[in-house]
Nucleic acid binder design. Structure first.
Length: 933
DNA sequence: CTAGAGCGCTCG
DNA sequence: GTACGAGCGCTCTAGC
């Protein structure tokens, strides 16, 4: 059939399909030989789904899958940095690229690519040709670069979200019509493709400008007329760069194709070609399904696994469907769910609450899921009426199971040892349930599964995971709750909407569990998950619920004292400046220092503002300038007041009189915890004035605070891992490690050590842990770079194991894309093979991660064993600060607890790892944290 | 008013 | 252009 009026051309962006498939699926391999095949599998499934969906009245008459070919295109000739910061193709994906071409042909769909051109250019050319012949075009892609083609019978279809994008859709995305999209892109640039654009101008501003001036050329010609000085300057100065950007984003509609639209006519797949291909790939489920469709016999695929048995197949994709969720509004229905859970032995659980602070919020509803697509929501305390009316304006919505009845019904399964409860960030839900008298156990946590598998690759929030691994964008909570002043709490969300949202969360959690759990074995992180991640949940939940007592009076007094001092300093600063300004504004301060007073060294950062960091001000103060010296004092007080004495008071729980932080288990890529709301891991200690904040952290009456901290744990780990005999011996002899290092490096006997030499050695020791560089050390010690490099060279000479460790670690990271701690924790370093400064960052992070991560593993092991070790004593573990644990202990039991805790901490590496350096924990005690430290 | 970016500072 | 890993408060700007 000749292409013409009435024809409908579908153009599929093949690369997008492949990458989507690759990232959405676990790393599947072909059973017979282990060839990575996940992307091909996903690609075939997507093609199959496409073919099924594409039938019907709006079916295409012509279709092609378009691929990129080669990494060098004509755009690189215009701009050699085009797509320069693209990550390299993952190793597992490379061999799959040709297979996806074969797959396309096996489905009997035209498969097109052209050396030196991107798929987008071919798509552009074909779209224009089809339009000129009076046909319609649907581009199956979500790539915004293709939006310039929309209009005049050309539309886009985002296959993942199943959303059509027409001219209005483009307008929504870019603020201009398709014909002006390239103008907006030329201004806004694109960090993914490394299109420079105009710095400081994003899509919103670009659209505004284009709409005002009509098009890019007019805008650039009349740039003088722009009112905002910064924009005007940017557009005038960066004109060449903007014009180049336009050429980069403008698609080529005249690519030299060696085929015509007529060649793309839709053809039925040939079973004799397609089925053998699927058999070769060993896609059992898919070949069966397609064989049924084509009315042919499914090919027999031999089952010759090379991998361990118990290797689960990828979960079959069940589409997300909110209408399939059940809203449970009576006890009989809930009992049916409970029976189903008992039958299944496992359930995904999620709670909905009135806020985010587990210690104060109320339970609003519970959702459950027992299979992909099968989920329910149990509304419990949804209300209606005025949410701010404290006098009964809000009333409970009818048709909800009474809270106590529902909990009584669920409690037996939630506490049943034989039933696994899955959650996403289960610590949150477990704490909520605990407050309602339900002790949830045993558990799995999809957030922690992802963390064990993917630390360093991406975040582990549900939205990220769902989009990445399920290809599904969860219902956002924003539209339900609103924002700002008008925001409501979840109990005022209508049950219908709440139900769809909440049940979906449980459904997603279930599917993530199905996706991740089988991968633990394959990726060899089962032990990490089971001994370092999951057991942290109950331990941290206990610590967080215990909280630490904070004396409001102490903070309040300090706050007043700080305020007075600050007022005095502020007056002095204004006096010295000769005008009043906001001392807290780095921008205004910079202008005073470097413009008005013309002090030396005014360096501007990337936003054009002067840098006024402590290092800059210290240099100026050292030259005898009073104003920067006063500002430094003011800043210190300001920090202490706002972040600590003031903000901390707001975190005192009125019921407990204590501060309950929240630890994020998957917060740091290295295995460290992070503390939030409030962060109790950065309470001041280094300055005398700051340290006094710790006096406000107190023990309850009759008790003391006890602190144990690992002495030099990271250097000890380094000495072990890099095998540094001199350092190991110094530790064995209990020497001052920095002095010993200095002695070794500078040939100074210990009894002649000076503080200055020791200080330098200390800086170098830390530098090594951080992935040392001459530049970094020079800046830290404020010495010339060459001198710093000399220090490093002699360090490497005296401790040759260091160099080997660094080289081996780097090589391992480059080969595998991750590094490991002594306990097997993986920390991914995806940028290690990048180009430019990013590689440097990745390299230093790779050096540091095994050291910092091993220390994190060790204290986690100690924390997990601690509750049992002190169970019979009147003591509670309250806080962790990376290498320190803080307890609250009855006065008369302090010595016993110290001994027990020390034993656990010092033996925490055993028996999994035998360190050839001993671990030492120092202890301190007192009425408050300042005394105990 | 609200959201987000950037800066600066706190800790191990 | 750089030391590694985090969280949070303030200012400033853009946009509703």
């Amino acid at each position: 059939m000749t292409f013409g009026k009435g024809c409908h051309l579908h153009l599929i962006d093949g690369s997008a399909f492949i990458f989507r498939a690759f990232h959405a699926l676990p790393p599947l391999t072909r059973k017979s030989d282990g060839l990575p095949i996940g992307a091909v599998s996903g690609f075939c499934n997507m093609l199959q789904k496409y073919v099924e969906d594409a039938s019907g009245p709006d079916a295409p008459t012509h279709v092609a899958v378009i691929f990129d070919k080669g990494s060098h295109t004509f755009r690189n000739d215009m701009y050699d940095l085009y797509k320069a910061n693209r990550e390299e193709m993952p190793e597992a994906l490379r061999p799959q690229m040709p297979l996806t071409r074969r797959a396309t042909e096996a489905f009997n769909i035209a498969c097109k690519e052209l050396e030196g051109y991107e798929a987008d250019d071919i798509i552009a050319t074909l779209s224009v040709q089809a339009r000129e012949l009076g046909g319609r075009v649907t581009i199956i892609s979500s790539d915004k670069d293709l939006m310039q083609l929309v209009g005049g019978g050309v539309e886009m279809l985002d296959a993942m979200k199943n959303r059509r994008i027409d001219v209005d859709g483009v307008r929504e995305k870019f603020g201009v019509g398709p014909e002006r999209v390239v103008d907006v892109q030329a201004l806004a640039g694109d960090s993914v493709d490394n299109v420079p654009g105009a710095p400081g101008i994003g899509i919103k501003t670009a659209a505004l400008l284009i709409n005002e001036f009509g098009d890019l050329e007019t805008l650039l010609d009349r740039a003088e007329e722009i009112k905002q000085p910064k924009r005007r300057q940017t557009l005038i100065e960066k004109r060449d760069q903007i014009e180049l950007s336009k050429k980069l984003v403008q698609l080529d509609t005249n690519t030299p194709l060696d085929f015509t639209l007529d060649d793309l006519e839709v053809k039925e797949p040939d079973p004799d070609v397609l089925l053998p291909f699927l058999a070769e790939m060993e896609f059992r489920t898919l070949s069966k399904r397609i064989a049924d469709k084509l009315g042919a016999e499914a090919p027999v695929i031999a089952d010759t696994p090379v991998q361990a048995a118990g290797d689960d197949p990828a979960p079959e994709a069940v589409p997300f469907d909110a209408s399939a969720y059940e809203c449970v509004r009576d006890l009989e229905t809930l009992e049916k769910w409970v029976a189903a859970i008992r039958d299944r032995g496992v359930v995904a659980v999620d709670t909905e609450t009135t806020g985010l602070d587990e210690m104060t919020v109320d339970l609003v509803g519970i959702s459950l899921s027992t299979a992909a697509g099968k989920a329910c929501y149990i509304p419990l305390t949804h209300k209606t009426g005025a949410s701010d009316d404290l006098f009964g304006g809000a009333t409970l919505v009818e048709g909800q199971i009474p809270l106590d009845d529902a909990l009584a019904c669920l409690k037996p399964v939630l506490e049943d040892d034989a039933i696994l409860k899955i959650g996403q960030n289960m610590k949150y839900d477990a704490k909520i349930f605990a407050r309602y008298g339900v002790k949830v156990a045993p558990i799995d946590d999809t957030m922690l599964l992802s963390y064990a598998l993917h630390a360093g690759l991406h975040g582990h929030g549900m939205d990220t995971l769902s989009e990445r691994y399920l290809g599904h964008e969860p219902i956002p909570i924003k539209p339900l709750l609103g924002s700002g002043k008008s925001a409501i709490t979840f109990d005022f969300v209508p049950i219908e909407e709440a139900s769809a949202y909440a049940a979906e969360d449980a459904d997603i959690t279930w599917r993530l569990w199905e996706t991740f759990k089988p991968q633990l074995h394959r990726e060899k992180v089962t032990t990490v998950y089971e001994t370092l991640e999951r057991p942290m949940v109950p331990v941290l939940a206990e610590m967080e619920m215990a909280g630490v007592k904070v004396d409001r009076e102490v903070l309040s007094r300090m706050s007043n004292a700080f305020a007075q001092k600050m007022a005095g300093l502020e007056a002095e600063i204004h006096e010295l400046a000769g005008e009043t300004f906001n001392v807290g504004s780095p921008k205004q301060l910079g202008e005073i220092l470097f413009d008005k007073m013309s002090l030396p060294g005014g360096k501007r950062g990337k936003t054009g503002a002067y840098a006024t960091g402590a290092d800059v001000l210290e240099d100026l103060a050292a030259e005898g300038h009073d104003l920067p010296a006063r500002v430094l004092d003011w800043r210190q007080l300001s920090k202490l007041k706002s972040t600590y004495t003031d903000a901390l008071q707001d975190h005192i729980n009125p019921e407990t009189g204590r501060v309950h932080t929240s630890y994020i288990i998957s917060g740091a890529a290295t295995g460290r915890l992070a503390s939030t709301d409030p962060n109790l891991q950065n309470i001041p200690v280094r300055s005398e004035e700051g340290r006094r904040i710790r006096e406000a952290f107190v023990a309850d009456e009759g008790k003391l605070l006890l602190s144990l901290d690992y002495s030099q744990i990271e250097l000890r780990i380094l000495a072990h891992m890099a095998d540094l005999p001199a350092m190991k011996q110094a530790f064995a002899e209990g020497q001052d490690i920095h002095a010993a290092t200095a002695s070794e490096m500078f040939n100074v006997p210990l009894d002649q050590m000076t503080p200055e030499i020791r200080r330098q050695a200390k800086a170098i020791n830390f530098g090594v842990i951080y992935g040392i560089s001459g530049f970094g050390l020079a800046r830290n010690l404020r010495i010339p770079r060459a001198e710093a490099q000399g220090f490093i060279d002699s360090y490497f000479e005296r401790f040759p194991g260091i160099k080997d460790y660094m080289e081996e670690t780097k090589a391992f990271a480059k080969e595998h894309g991750f590094v490991r701690t002594l306990f097997g924790r993986r920390v991914h370093t995806p940028e290690i093979n990048a180009k430019g400064p990013r590689a440097g960052f990745a390299y230093r992070a790779a050096i540091n991660a095994p050291i910092q991560g091993t220390a994190a593993d060790i204290i986690r092991r100690a924390m997990i064993r601690m509750p049992a070790a002190i169970a019979d004593l009147p003591a509670k573990m309250l806080l962790q600060v990376h290498d320190e644990l803080i307890f609250e202990v009855d006065e008369n039991a302090v010595d016993t607890v110290t001994a027990r805790a020390r034993e656990v901490m010092e033996g925490a590496a055993d028996p999994a790892v035998h360190l050839n350096v001993k671990l030492v924990a120092d202890a301190g005690q007192g009425r408050n944290w300042a005394e105990a430290h």
